[in-house]
Simulated assay, not measured.
Amino acid sequence: MKKNASFIIMDSALAKSLYDTLKTLELKSKYSHELLQGLEDLMEGEVATLMLGMVGPGENLVHVVDDGIYAGALEIHPKSRKVLHGGIEVNLTPKEFDILYFLAKNKGAVFTKEQIYQAVWEEDYLMADSNIMAFIRKLRKKIEPDPDAPEYVLTIWGIGYKFTDRI
């Protein structure tokens, strides 16, 4: 079975050695500059993680390093404000995206409707329980394989909602 990802820890000595070695080679890849820049950013503390992706025949690599959130078949990309499910883009309204992103970046944490409202709308809570519930319902219809048995946005009865920490 092919793994989706592999995480390898690298210390500063290895990063420096790899950087120095790559710098001396005459690499013919059009991506070598990006790799060197990524290693430089890693060594300077500009980034904490460097993600590498392989380009196959006929494929284009477009900014492999991103700040996406990945949970099962769901991908959330805050910079481009895109959500993909199984590789297919899901069209969300701005508030649906904001709610999903807020919950996902706080994976496993339970939030009341009031907390979600204040985080997403950035204003005082005005008894908008049904408003939040409606947004969650619409969001689930778009991202959940079975909205009646959600996998991603879970209801914590009597409290509120959370983004799953099981995937």
Results as ranks from 00 to 15, higher is better:
residue 116 I to Q: 05
residue 10 M to F: 05
residue 34 E to V: 08
residue 70 Y to A: 04
residue 55 V to S: 12
residue 138 K to H: 09
residue 57 P to E: 11
residue 137 R to P: 01
residue 22 L to N: 08
residue 132 I to D: 02
residue 38 G to N: 08
residue 75 E to Y: 05
residue 149 A to N: 12
residue 165 D to K: 15
residue 33 H to M: 07
residue 2 K to C: 09
residue 121 W to R: 00
residue 92 L to Q: 04
residue 117 Y to P: 02
residue 164 T to A: 05
residue 136 I to F: 00
residue 29 S to P: 03
residue 137 R to Y: 08
residue 42 L to I: 06
residue 140 R to N: 00
residue 121 W to C: 05
residue 79 K to Y: 09
residue 44 E to Q: 13
residue 63 H to L: 13
residue 33 H to N: 15
residue 20 D to K: 07
residue 7 F to C: 10
residue 50 L to Y: 09
residue 28 K to V: 05
residue 22 L to Y: 08
residue 41 D to I: 06
residue 98 D to L: 04
residue 47 V to R: 15
residue 74 L to E: 00
residue 33 H to Y: 13
residue 130 S to R: 10
residue 123 E to G: 01
residue 164 T to I: 07
residue 91 N to L: 10
residue 63 H to Q: 13
residue 55 V to E: 13
residue 61 L to V: 14
residue 23 K to E: 12
residue 33 H to T: 14
residue 162 K to M: 14
residue 77 H to W: 10
residue 13 A to D: 15
residue 129 D to K: 14
residue 75 E to A: 08
residue 156 I to R: 11
residue 22 L to I: 13
residue 60 N to K: 14
residue 70 Y to F: 14
residue 71 A to R: 11
residue 158 G to M: 08
residue 93 T to N: 02
residue 86 G to F: 07
residue 137 R to M: 01
residue 119 A to K: 06
residue 99 I to G: 01
residue 19 Y to V: 05
residue 158 G to C: 08
residue 3 K to P: 06
residue 28 K to G: 13
residue 144 E to K: 01
residue 48 A to C: 11
residue 43 M to V: 07
residue 139 L to W: 02
residue 116 I to W: 09
residue 58 G to E: 07
residue 48 A to T: 15
residue 7 F to A: 14
residue 107 K to N: 12
residue 108 G to T: 03
residue 114 E to C: 14
residue 56 G to F: 06
residue 23 K to M: 14
residue 32 S to E: 07
residue 103 L to E: 03
residue 80 S to M: 12
residue 125 Y to F: 15
residue 133 M to R: 15
residue 163 F to C: 05
residue 132 I to R: 04
residue 47 V to T: 15
residue 22 L to A: 12
residue 154 L to G: 02
residue 156 I to S: 05
residue 70 Y to S: 04
residue 159 I to V: 14
residue 54 M to R: 11
residue 112 T to C: 07
residue 14 L to N: 11
residue 28 K to C: 08
residue 160 G to R: 12
residue 131 N to S: 14
residue 62 V to A: 13
residue 37 Q to T: 12
residue 150 P to Q: 04
residue 83 V to Q: 01
residue 59 E to Q: 15
residue 86 G to E: 07
residue 139 L to A: 00
residue 41 D to M: 09
residue 55 V to K: 15
